[in-house]
């Protein structure tokens, strides 16, 4: 296990289960075992970034240096109906997506 600023690159089975939960993925035990190994090896590899001195370098999010891009505040009609969009939904009724209740 290698430690840098408290980061572990060697993931445990339980950590992978936790990440899967955050990712909303229901993994099988076989997948969990496989990803534990594979993610650990990738994380171990990317640790080499710590060799780069980034001092006061600013992070880049948009490569062209764009920040806020404004347009006129005008309503533009897409021309696509609710029904057309609903065609791809598993359940669609009266112009609405059907989901299970979220309050108990």
């Amino acid at each position: 296990m290698s430690v840098c600023k408290g980061i572990m690159t060697n993931l445990s089975n339980d950590e992978v289960k936790h990440i899967a939960k955050l990712s909303r993925l229901e993994l099988t035990q076989e997948e969990i075992d496989k990803y534990t190994d594979q993610l650990s090896s990738v994380l171990e590899y990317v640790e080499k970034l710590n060799e780069v001195n980034t001092g006061d370098t600013e992070p880049t999010a948009n490569i062209a240096g764009l920040n806020d891009v404004f347009r006129d505040d005008e309503v533009v009609v897409s021309g696509i109906s609710h029904e057309e969009i609903g065609k791809n939904a598993p359940e669609f009724k009266d112009g609405l997506l059907v989901v299970p209740g979220v309050f108990e």
């Binding site: 600023k5 970034l49 780069v52 370098t57 992070p59 880049t60």
Partner: peptide, 13 residues
Amino acid sequence: DAFYKKAAKVRTK
């Protein structure tokens, strides 16, 4: 910070 932000800084460099 250790992963995403670090990488975004190296991206600048």
